[in-house]
């Protein structure tokens, strides 16, 4: 018997594959392709206390082996999320992780409090979005600020808290330690790397926002390195992501120290990516004679 179960802060996932926030809506759209029951967890698009309109278009640009995005955290706000999106997602047999965004500490706390009585398994706090002017990244690039917001969120959260870390920092280990010191139950990484593309025919920026977050296969080696460093810096479970497109990529992150993984941009390259990766992990385990997926976590040494 192969066991693909992993546990994040006491929440057991049937397999280590989650979706990366912002690439999978609230799951509903992708269920036109396959049953979400095949996933360990669905991570929702960032939800704020109020509706956010996001950035002007163009919001995305393709780059070599990757893409830039500057969606600007458009979301319908917590009320609509709770009334419409969460009940739909609950119909699937998968764990639910709600990604939370905000401009101020109070914004985050408001959302976290609204979620406290709801059937949600985990919270992921996005303090690493490079595409909104205030808030977001401001909390994610300074260890003191990160520790403080983690403490505030923890005071009000009913569910375990995952702090989502930015790769746009000098020392990722220090940031992981700050989240741990603030009382986080887990960390996830990496969010996108800040980038820019210029339209040489129009002599201007391809994205209306000028800069955007780089994701996709192009960033994977950076992500694997950062997951490795974070996993070695803290005792918390680490959720690894950044350019995962196949089961082998997911295994690589787990061997670097990730307890679970998230699939983002790959959902655009193949709408079945997350589900295919979950199945591919089991196949890899059978081929390699691995009985318990937990045996490979941090196996690279």
């Amino acid at each position: 018997m192969t066991s693909t179960k992993v546990s994040i802060a006491g929440v057991e996932l049937k397999n280590p594959v989650m979706t990366a926030s912002g690439t999978f809506g609230s799951g509903e759209e992708f269920s036109e392709y396959y049953s979400l029951d095949s996933l360990g967890a669905v991570v929702t698009k960032g939800v704020a206390s109020e509706p956010w309109p996001g950035n002007p278009v163009p919001r995305i640009a393709e780059t070599y082996g990757g893409m830039l995005n500057a969606i600007g955290l458009q979301n319908p706000g917590i009320d609509v999320f709770l009334q419409r999106d969460l009940p739909l997602l609950r119909k699937s047999d998968t764990k639910i992780v709600v990604n939370v965004c905000g401009r101020t500490e109070e914004d985050y706390v408001k959302v976290v409090e609204r979620l406290s009585g709801e059937p949600v398994d985990l919270l992921e706090i996005n303090v690493s979005c490079p595409n909104v002017k205030e808030g977001g990244i401001a909390f994610g690039q300074n260890p003191g600020a990160l520790q403080h917001i983690t403490e505030e969120v923890k005071k009000h959260a009913a569910q375990p808290v995952i702090m989502k870390l930015s790769p746009n920092v000098t020392d990722i280990a220090e940031m992981a330690r700050a989240a741990e010191a603030g009382g986080a139950d887990a960390v996830s990484l990496i969010n996108t790397l800040t980038g820019m593309k210029i339209d040489i025919y129009r002599r201007t920026f391809t994205l209306a926002n000028r800069t955007g977050g780089l994701s996709g296969p192009a960033i994977r080696p950076v992500a694997v390195r950062m997951v490795y460093q974070a996993a070695h810096a803290v005792k918390l479970p680490v959720i690894g992501m950044g350019g995962i497109t196949c089961a082998e990529d997911a295994i690589e992150f787990m061997m670097a120290g990730a307890t679970a993984v998230a699939v983002g941009t790959a959902n655009f390259m193949n709408p079945f990516a997350a589900s295919d990766i979950a199945r591919g992990i089991t196949r890899f385990m059978v081929e390699q004679g691995i009985e318990d997926i937990r045996d490979i976590i941090g196996a690279a040494c």
Binding site: G54, V57, P58, R59, F268
Partner: peptide, 16 residues
């Protein structure tokens, strides 16, 4: 027309 990634309404890349 707008730039698209998911094509199914999930990523909010393509708004007007």
């Amino acid at each position: 027309e707008e730039r698209m990634a998911c094509g199914i309404g999930a990523c909010l890349s393509c708004v007007c």
